[in-house]
Nucleic acid binder design. Structure first.
Length: 561
RNA sequence: UGGCCUAUGGUGUAAUUGGCAACACAGCUGGUUUUGGUCCAGUCGUUCUAGGUUCGAGUCCUAGUAGGCCAACCA
C-alpha cells in the first residue's frame, strides 16, 4: 500500500530504460560466470547477490556459467565448491552452463571469421607479438603473418585443432586494428594451443579459446540480455561488441556488457593468488579457515547467508572506487544472529566464586530465557550450585561507580539466578586473585516474584556452575590484517600486515545444555558474542568459533579513561 | 605523452532525471533493559576546484585537479 519507490542502482536504471525502449520483460536473462579455478570469496558474493537479486526482482532466469577455457587452472573440485557456495547463499540458477559446452560452436564461428578474412594464424613467439603490440601511447605494428591466405589459415587452424603443433607455435588472432588506442583491439588472440586435459572435455581439444572470444559469444548463445562484470573489463567492451558483430543475427537478443566497481572490504585481501599464499604459508589453516574472506570461511566462522545478502544489498552498486569497512559486515551478522541465536552462558576467562552461605552439595536448576527478544524461543534450565565461575574481568577489589560489576562489598545479579555480594577474595603468591567469596540472597531468585527478586542492582553477570560446566575449545578470531587495505601499499607486501594475533585458542566453561550442540549451530554467549560449532568438534571435545563480539560500549568507556 | 572510467558526510550508496541533498553503518547524547546486548529518541556532518547556462545545478556546459584501469598464448 504505502509502497515507497525503491531507489534504483545504475544497473537497474539501465534495465528499466531497456524495458521502455523495446526489451520485453520475458527477454531478461542474467548470468553469474565464475572461473572454476578457486574458491568464491566475499567479492563474488556481492556479484552473486547482484545477478541473482536482479533475477528475483525481474522474474528473470539466471544461469550459472563456468568460464572454463583454461584447463591449466581449472578443476572439478572448484566447480563443486562454487555450486555449494551459491546454493548456501540461498540462490538457485536456471541452468548450469559451461563455456566448454560451446567449444564446437566457437570453433565453427572462428572458421567463419577466417573465411571472412577477419582472423589469421600468427606463428610468432609471444615475445615477438608483445614487441609489435606497441604501448598505450604508441601504435603497434602488424604481424608478418597478418596477410596469410584464407586457405593457409584454414589449413593451419585445422592442424592446430588436430594436435599437430607444439604449444606456443601458433595462435589464431582476430584481424582488427594494430593502431587502435585500445590495446585489446590490436589483433587479440582468439585461440592458443594447450596440450592439457580439461576437467570436462578431457583431451578432446588441444586448442582453447581465450576469454574475450568466449565470453560474449557464450552470453549470446545463452541469450543473456545483460552481462555485468567488474570495471577492469570496461576496455574489453569494445572487443566484446566486435566479436558479437561477427556472429550476430537480426532479431536475436544482443547481450549488453556493463561494468560496475568491485567492492573492496577493509582489512582483507581477495585475490586468489594472495589467498592462496595465506594458505600455503600457513598463516591460515585452509581455504575455509574462519579468518578467510572466502564464502566457505565465512560459513565456518558462523556467518549466515541472510547476513551476507543483507550486506550486499546495503552496500549497493556503483562505478567508483570503494573500501567498505568490515564493521558493516559485522553489523549485519550481529543483526541477524541477534534475532535467531539462542542465548546461553559460557565463561571464557574463569574466576572462581564460592557462595559461602549456599549449602554444600546442593544444586538447583534455574529457568533461563532462550531469547528475550523472541517470545517463541522458549526457555531452558541451567544448574546452579555453591561454586561458580564468572569472568575475571567482572571482578575488581575496588572500582569507581562506572564499574557495573562485582567489587568487594558490592552487589550484582547473577543472570537468571540470585543477587550476590562479594565479601572477600583470596590471592596467590603473585597477588593474582584466584577466588572470590560471596554471599547470596536466597530470596532474590530471578522470576520468583518476591520483593527481593525485584530489587534493582546495577550489573548482571553471566556465570556457570563449576561442577556442571562443559569444557570446550573456543577459538577467538581477530582481523587477519592490521592494515585496512593491506595490498595497496607500493613499498610493502601485504604479508607484512598479517596480524600475528588473529587466532587465540582457549578453554571455555559452558552451561551443560550445550552438550548436544551440532556442527554449525549458532548461539550467543551472553555478554560476550556470537559463537558457532566448528566442524572440528567431536563427541569428546566440542569446538566453538567466535563469529563476532557483541557491541561493546564498556570497552569504549575503558579505552577513553 | 594516448585512450577509457570515476569524483556526494568518517564509510558505502540514494536523490522522482534541472526543483527542500536522503538511507544505512560508524561517532556522540539521553531513555528503557535481569546481556554495558537489543530496542527507542535525539545529534553530528556532505555535492573535488574555478567559471558558465538557468528563476533554480549534486545533476547540464567549459577548463582544471585528483584517483583508478589499459601493453598475459589468464579470467
Amino acid at each position: 500500500m504505502s509502497e515507497e519507490r525503491a531507489s534504483l542502482n545504475f544497473l537497474e536504471h539501465i534495465i528499466e530504460e531497456d524495458l521502455q525502449t523495446g526489451y520485453e520483460k520475458a527477454q531478461l536473462r542474467f548470468r553469474f560466470p565464475p572461473e572454476p579455478n578457486g574458491y568464491l570469496h566475499i567479492g563474488h558474493a556481492s556479484s552473486i547477490c547482484l545477478n541473482f537479486g536482479l533475477g528475483l526482482k525481474y522474474g528473470a532466469p539466471v544461469n550459472l556459467r563456468f568460464d572454463d577455457t583454461n584447463p591449466a587452472k581449472e578443476e572439478q573440485e572448484f566447480v563443486d565448491a562454487i555450486k555449494r557456495d551459491v546454493e548456501w547463499l540461498g540462490f538457485s540458477w536456471d541452468t548450469e552452463r559451461y563455456a566448454s559446452d560451446y567449444f564446437d560452436q566457437l570453433y565453427d564461428w572462428a572458421v567463419l571469421l577466417i573465411k571472412g578474412g577477419k582472423a589469421y594464424i600468427d606463428s610468432q613467439s609471444s615475445e615477438e607479438m608483445a614487441d609489435q603490440k606497441g604501448t598505450p601511447t604508441e601504435a603497434g605494428t602488424e604481424s608478418p603473418f597478418r596477410n596469410r591466405s584464407v586457405d593457409e589459415n584454414l589449413k593451419l587452424f585445422e592442424e592446430m585443432k588436430a594436435g599437430k603443433f607444439e604449444e606456443g607455435t601458433h595462435v589464431l588472432r582476430a584481424k582488427i586494428d594494430m593502431t587502435s588506442s585500445n590495446m585489446l583491439m590490436r589483433d587479440p588472440i582468439m585461440y592458443r594451443i594447450l596440450h592439457k586435459a580439461h576437467h570436462r572435455t578431457n583431451t578432446d581439444w588441444c586448442i582453447y579459446p581465450m576469454y574475450d572470444w568466449t565470453h560474449g559469444e557464450s552470453d549470446y548463445i545463452e541469450q543473456v540480455s545483460h552481462s555485468f562484470c567488474t570495471l577492469e573489463f570496461a576496455m574489453h567492451r569494445e572487443l566484446y561488441n566486435w566479436f558479437l558483430d561477427q556472429v550476430y543475427e537480426e532479431n536475436r537478443m544482443r547481450p549488453k556488457q556493463r561494468e560496475f566497481a568491485r567492492r573492496n572490504l577493509s582489512h582483507t585481501v581477495v585475490s586468489k593468488r594472495k589467498l592462496a599464499k595465506l594458505v600455503e604459508s600457513g598463516v591460515v589453516s585452509s581455504w575455509d579457515d574462519p579468518r578467510m574472506p572466502t564464502i566457505s570461511g565465512l560459513r565456518r566462522r558462523g556467518y549466515t547467508p541472510e547476513s551476507i545478502r543483507n550486506f550486499a544489498d546495503t552496500i549497493g552498486i556503483a562505478k567508483r572506487e570503494n573500501l567498505i569497512d568490515v564493521s558493516l559486515l559485522e553489523f549485519h551478522v550481529r543483526d541477524h544472529l541477534n534475532k535467531i541465536a539462542p542465548r546461553v552462558m559460557g565463561v571464557l576467562n574463569p574466576l572462581k566464586v564460592v557462595l559461602t552461605n549456599y549449602p554444600e552439595g546442593e544444586e538447583e536448576w534455574l529457568e533461563a530465557e532462550n531469547n528475550p527478544g523472541d517470545e517463541n524461543a522458549g526457555s531452558r534450565k541451567v544448574p546452579f550450585s555453591r561454586e561458580l565461575y564468572i569472568e575475571k574481568e567482572d571482578f575488581k577489589e575496588e572500582a569507581n561507580r562506572k564499574f557495573f560489576r562485582l567489587k568487594l562489598g558490592g552487589e550484582v545479579r547473577l543472570k537468571n539466578g540470585y543477587i550476590i555480594r562479594a565479601e572477600s577474595c583470596t590471592k596467590d603468591t603473585n597477588g593474582n586473585i584466584i577466588e572470590v567469596q560471596c554471599t547470596y540472597d536466597p530470596k532474590s531468585k530471578s522470576g520468583s516474584g518476591s520483593e527481593e527478586s525485584l530489587r534493582k542492582v546495577k550489573g548482571t553477570l553471566h556465570w556457570v556452575s563449576i561442577a556442571h560446566a562443559l569444557k570446550a575449545e573456543v577459538r577467538l578470531y581477530d582481523r587477519l590484517f592490521t592494515d585496512e587495505s593491506p595490498d595497496t601499499h607500493k613499498d610493502k607486501d601485504f604479508m607484512d600486515f598479517v596480524n600475528p594475533e588473529s587466532l587465540e585458542v582457549i578453554t571455555g566453561y559452558l552451561e551443560p545444555s550445550l552438550k548436544d550442540a551440532q556442527i554449525e549451530d549458532r548461539v550467543q554467549f551472553q555478554r560476550l558474542g556470537y559463537f558457532c560449532v566448528d566442524p572440528d568438534s567431536t563427541a569428546e571435545k566440542i569446538v566453538f568459533n567466535k563469529t563476532v563480539g557483541l557491541r561493546d560500549t564498556w570497552a569504549k568507556i575503558t579505552q577513553k579513561d
